[in-house]
């Protein structure tokens, strides 16, 4: 406490009832002191990280229930309902195959182009949808945020969980497509599990980052689809980076190789497609995948928490 309140307080007779028309300043100092004495904390202050994590853990049922509610509400107005969880990735794959496989023929130098392309599309869509959901996690739930108190990180995490569950359905579709195009199930396919796990952690971190950014800059929701499309074209979704960028300058090649989206896509291809060998992957792909996941998740969480008290404010 600064010295002026204490000296002002000393000027008033100690602990005697101040006269009602006493000057304002001593009384104000008294209020701050009274608050401190009874353990009252400034309203709307961000809790320390440890306490925040505990509160978040206490709200795990909310995270789960909110994710389920969101998933069921998403297709509640469509006649086919949750059949769209399968239909959307199927149509997505069909459109990309039509454009890039049949019309543009970007399949140069790629064996088994259909599973190559579909894996790329599905894995990238997972990250893309999580980011788009994250951008609106705060701005789209202001009513809830203003009415009830809970750790706000529950919202972006919950929306990331919605996309993880969707990805499990999508993986089923992917495995069917991969088998239909002549791949035979192998032990190697089990590698898809750690890939999905790492990508889920990475996505959750991204959702947290973009939830904070989207809460501050509302125009981000309009901008992000373009940013994400650019990212997709740079991530080797519909072409092979190792073929296309074979003669690219080293710095460009480096950026293309450490791009997390490309890393997760290539690891998934490596797991599922026999003709896609380790030589086509960026060097140290597993380390990159793990590093991105841990760094973005922790960084994103701390970044989100640092603005906790500002969410829901005008």
């Amino acid at each position: 406490m600064s010295s002026s309140p204490s000296s002002a307080r000393a000027a008033a007779p100690a602990d005697a009832d101040p006269v009602p028309d006493a000057p304002r300043a001593p009384e104000a100092a008294g209020l701050a002191e009274l608050a401190a004495r009874h353990g009252l904390a400034p309203s709307g202050k961000r809790p320390p990280l440890g306490r925040y994590l505990t509160a978040l853990w206490r709200h795990r049922h909310f995270v789960d229930a909110f994710a389920r509610a969101r998933a069921s509400a998403k297709y509640s107005k469509a006649n086919l309902g949750r059949l769209w969880e399968v239909g959307t990735p199927l149509l997505n794959a069909a459109v990309y195959y039509l454009i890039f496989g049949l019309l543009l023929q970007t399949d140069r130098g790629v064996e088994d182009f259909i599973p190559f392309l579909v894996t790329g599309v599905f894995v990238f869509t997972f990250t893309q949808q999580t980011v788009l959901a994250g951008v609106r996690a705060i701005s789209g739930n202001l009513g809830l945020i203003r009415a009830l108190h809970f750790p706000r990180a529950a919202l972006p995490i919950s929306l990331a969980l919605v996309q993880m569950r969707q990805m499990l359905v999508t993986m089923g579709v992917l495995l069917v497509i991969v088998m239909a195009t002549g791949q035979v199930p192998q032990w190697n396919w089990l590698l898809a599990v750690p890939v999905l796990l790492l990508q889920s952690l990475f996505n959750t971190g991204l959702a947290l980052v973009f939830a904070r950014a989207g809460a501050k800059v509302s125009d981000l929701a309009q901008l992000m689809p373009f940013v994400l499309r650019t990212w997709m074209y740079a991530s080797g979704v519909m072409y092979s980076i190792s073929v296309m960028a074979a003669s690219a300058p080293a710095p460009v090649r480096f950026i293309l190789d450490v791009n997390p989206a490309a890393v997760y896509i290539d690891l998934m291809r490596f797991s599922l497609i026999e003709s896609f060998t380790a030589s086509e992957m960026p060097p140290h792909a597993w380390w990159l995948a793990a590093g991105w996941a841990v760094a973005v998740l922790i960084g994103g969480f701390v970044y989100f928490w640092k603005a906790e008290e500002s969410y829901g404010r005008d």
Binding site: G39, L40, G143
Partner: peptide, 23 residues
């Protein structure tokens, strides 16, 4: 300017505090 001190977390209930309308 000034400060609000509270014990615990106050809950505000307003008319326009919509929860989740589509649910």
């Amino acid at each position: 300017r000034g400060q609000v001190y509270t014990s615990g977390q106050p809950s505000l209930l307003g008319v326009n505090a919509a929860l989740m309308n589509e649910l």
